[in-house]
């Protein structure tokens, strides 16, 4: 799973499998981080009526 795991090898199979996997996980993580930060920002910049749109 990580380069310091016993089974890890720097080979094609690991590159493809974990490349794809960490890419997907990265997108999910980045997307959620962005959404949470943006929502926090939006909440702080709310004028009284904006959350009833």
């Amino acid at each position: 799973m990580f380069p310091f795991c016993f089974e890890w090898a720097w080979d094609m199979a690991h590159a493809i499998f974990f490349g794809g996997l960490w890419y997907a996980v990265g997108i999910l993580g980045a997307g959620m981080t962005y959404v949470v930060i943006k929502s926090a920002y939006d909440t702080m910049n709310d004028s009284g009526d904006s959350h009833h749109h």
Binding site: A40, T43, M44
Partner: peptide, 8 residues
């Protein structure tokens, strides 16, 4: 953030 929003 949650604290704040609940507060609000």
């Amino acid at each position: 953030i949650e604290n704040k929003s609940e507060n609000r």
